[in-house]
Structures are given as C-alpha cells and as structure tokens.
Design a binder for these strands. Structure first.
Lengths: 100, 100
DNA sequence: CTGCATCCGGAATGATACTG
DNA sequence: CAGTATCATTCCGGATGCAG
C-alpha cells in the first residue's frame, strides 16, 4: 500500500500548510524560542501565532516547555524536526539564483 | 550573505505556499496534464485551479503547452521540477507511520 | 512585561452557475 | 473542455484589551 505520496502530501499540508506554520517551525529549528521572540523575529500577528502554536501542538510538531517560573518556551518535537529536510529544500528552491 | 533560509523559505511560500499549489505541482510531476484531468484527480474547485495555474505560470513554475490542435495541457518547467525533492520530503513526512 | 484572547475589515477559498 | 462570474464562508492581519 504505497500511499504514493498524494495522500501523504495532502496530510502534511493539512498540518503544516497554513500560513506562517513552516516559518515558525523553521525558526524553532535553531532551538527553542519564546512567544515574544517568535513574534518579533518573524513579524507574525499575535493572534495568528497563538493559533498556529496551538494547532502545531495538537499535531505533535511543537511542545510547550517551561523554563524558569513565569517563563516558557516552544520547542520542536522529533516529529517536528522531521520537517528539517523539506524546509531546507523549500528554502534552497526559494533563494534567488546565484551564479558562481 | 548566506540568505540562510528564512528569506528563501518565505520567498518559496509566496510562490507555492497557497492552497492546492503544491498538490497541483505534485500531480504535474507525473507528466503534463490537462485542465479537466487536474480538476478531477485533485478535486480542486475550478476557480481556484484557474487562479493557481495563472499564478504558477507567472512564477515560472508551470507552462501551458499545446498538444494537438484544440487540445492543450499544463507542464512543469525546470524550475517547477526543482520542487520534486521538497514535495517528496513533505509527502513522506505526512504519510501515516506504518508498523509491519 | 509576557502570553495570549477578542473584535473587525479585508483577502483568500469554496460551491455553483454560466459562457465561448 | 476550459475556463469566467458570482456569492457565501472561512482565513488572515492589525489593533486593542486583559490576565498572570
């Protein structure tokens, strides 16, 4: 039953195909970040960021980890880090063509 | 100036991050297809498909190629085929975990 | 001060009817 | 067959409010 890919791709896009989702994950690939840091470094609206982080947690891509008391951060799960390859490919594809 | 990836990723998502865009491209990876074929195999609304195909042409990802007289099809450009890796990674990530 | 929730206008999406 | 036109629904984005 090789799902072929169409189904897998559709499933992937349902989980991380929303606007800003892959950008948030790409930021978290550099390490855990706090809410405000993600907001400032990405320039994403606060309501969208809150919604995405909630959805990504339900998808098992991101987890909320407490640091010191009163301070918490968001971190990728193993499943979330599994997107590193796809993100790298997309990023390389999107880079302006450079002639050596 | 290693564009790093954030910029490249954002640029990629602006071109192929819209809904259905990557699914259309994935279908075209199997070879050129006609409008009605894409519509039926993907189940995408006709107005969305028309819009995406127009945008993907402007992005240089897809070209409209005439076949026999009165029949035309959509085909990926080299740039479009450059997304094969990213799509394969996403599809594999989205596949349900299979335990043998 | 950080981490969200709410409200609202505008853009994107989807279902369907219509045209060359 | 290959789209375009129209309208309802949903999503997104910016401003703002509010609790811990």
């Amino acid at each position: 039953m090789t799902a072929g890919g169409r189904g897998g791709l559709a499933a992937a896009l349902e989980q991380v195909g929303q606007r800003w989702a892959l950008l948030v994950i790409a930021e978290l690939l550099d390490g855990a970040q706090r809410y405000g840091d993600l907001q400032r470094s990405l320039g994403v609206p606060t309501n969208i960021l809150a919604t995405r982080l909630k959805e990504l947690q339900e998808a098992g891509v991101v987890v909320r980890v407490p640091m010191s008391h009163n301070v918490l951060a968001y971190e990728l799960t193993d499943r979330g880090r599994g997107l590193a390859g796809a993100i790298a490919e997309l990023a390389r594809w999107g880079e302006p063509a450079e002639q050596p």
